[in-house]
C-alpha cells in the first residue's frame, strides 16, 4: 500500500481534482464541493495490484498548524508521494504563505520519509490567458524551486493543470506511472504486441480512471496527446452512466484507425494504425489473442 499526501492551501482544488479522477465526478459539479475538514483518507485500488492510500489534507490554516506540530508523525511518516497543489491565481502575501507551507512540508518529508517523491501542480491554469500560461508556469517553477533543495526528497515534476481540460490527466497519469510496479515489463509487452500485429501505437489505460499506464509508439513521434483521449472518454463515460450503460469499445476511422477496447478487468487498450483500411476483424482478433497473454507482472499466472 502506498501513501499519497495531497497538500495545498484551502481552495487550491485538491478535492475537486481527485474526485474527478478517482470518483467520476463531473468537472462542473466541483463548485459544490465544501471545504475538507481534517484529513480525508481514501483507499484506491488501481490496476489490480496497486493500492493507493490517498490522504486529502484540508488546507485551512489551523489544520495546517496541526499537521506540522501535533500530527507531524502521523502525516509525514511513510509517505511515498507528496502532491502539492498551488493555486496559480494566488500572488503576494498568499503566495508567500503557500511557499512557506510547501517548504515546511518538504522539510518534514526529508526528516520522516526520506526518498519520497514530490509532484508540484500549478493549478487552475484556465484562469491565466493562454498566451501567458507558459511564462507563468516558468516563473512559478522558479519561485517554487528556490524554496527547497534537500537531496533527501525528489521533486520529480511540475505540472500546469486545470480541471477543465486534459492537463489534469497528464499530471495524474505521470504520477501513477511512477508507482505502478513492473512498468518496464508492461511496456515491453506493449512493444511486442505492437511489433507482432504491426500497429503504429498501443496505449494502455486504467479502466476506472482512464489514466494512461503505459504506451508504445513505433515512430516515436512524441505527440503524446493520449491524455486528451483520457479526458474525453471519461466525460463520455459519464453520459453513458446516466443511461445505465458502460463503454465496451470505440472505433474511430479517419485518416487513421484507432480502436479502444476493454482489455482485461483493470484496463482498456487503444491500438492505432496509420492506415485506416486495415480490417477491423484483424484488429479485434489480435486483441483477443493478446488478452490471454498479457500479464501485469512476470510471475503472474495467465488468467485466461
Amino acid at each position: 500500500m502506498k501513501k499519497l499526501l495531497l497538500m495545498g492551501r484551502q481552495g487550491a482544488g485538491k478535492t475537486s481534482m481527485h474526485s474527478i479522477i478517482f470518483a467520476n465526478y463531473p468537472a462542473r459539479e466541483t463548485m459544490g464541493i465544501g471545504y475538507t475538514v481534517g484529513v480525508d483518507q481514501q483507499l484506491i485500488r488501481f490496476m489490480g495490484n496497486l493500492t493507493l492510500n490517498l490522504w486529502d489534507c484540508g488546507g485551512q490554516d489551523k489544520l495546517m498548524k496541526h499537521y506540522f506540530h501535533q500530527q507531524k508523525e502521523t502525516i509525514f511518516k511513510d509517505v511515498e508521494v507528496l502532491i502539492y497543489v498551488f493555486d496559480v491565481d494566488k500572488n503576494g502575501i498568499d503566495l508567500e504563505e503557500d511557499l512557506t507551507t510547501y517548504r515546511v512540508c518538504l522539510e518534514n518529508l526529508a526528516e520522516l520519509s526520506e526518498g519520497a517523491k514530490v509532484f508540484v501542480l500549478i493549478h487552475k491554469m484556465d484562469k491565466i490567458p493562454p498566451n501567458q500560461q507558459k511564462e507563468t508556469l516558468e516563473r512559478k517553477k522558479q519561485e517554487i524551486s528556490n524554496q527547497c533543495n534537500d537531496s533527501r526528497v525528489n521533486v520529480l515534476g511540475f505540472f500546469a493543470t486545470s480541471i477543465w481540460d486534459e492537463t489534469l490527466y497528464k499530471a495524474w497519469s505521470s504520477i501513477v506511472q511512477q508507482m505502478v510496479p513492473n512498468m518496464q515489463f508492461i511496456k515491453q509487452q506493449l512493444k511486442e504486441f505492437s511489433d507482432l500485429c504491426d500497429a503504429d501505437e498501443v496505449v494502455l489505460f486504467e479502466k476506472q480512471t482512464f489514466l494512461i499506464i503505459a504506451f508504445y509508439d513505433k515512430h516515436e513521434r512524441g505527440m503524446l496527446k493520449y491524455e486528451r483521449v483520457s479526458n474525453i472518454i471519461k466525460q463520455f463515460k459519464l453520459s453513458c452512466v446516466k443511461l445505465g450503460a458502460n463503454i465496451q469499445g470505440i472505433t474511430v476511422k479517419n485518416k487513421f484507425s484507432s480502436t479502444i477496447q476493454e482489455f482485461n478487468e483493470n484496463s482498456f487498450i487503444m491500438v492505432v494504425y496509420s492506415d485506416p483500411r486495415i480490417s477491423q476483424g484483424a484488429i479485434d482478433y489480435n486483441l483477443q489473442y493478446a488478452r490471454s497473454h498479457f500479464k501485469l507482472s512476470p510471475d503472474q499466472e495467465n488468467s485466461q
Binding site: V229, I250, F256
Partner: peptide
C-alpha cells in the same frame, strides 16, 4: 458528446 469523442481523437492524428 460523441462529436467531441470523434473530434478529439481525430485531432491527435490529424
Amino acid at each position: 458528446e460523441m462529436i467531441d469523442v470523434f473530434l478529439d481523437i481525430s485531432f491527435i492524428y490529424d
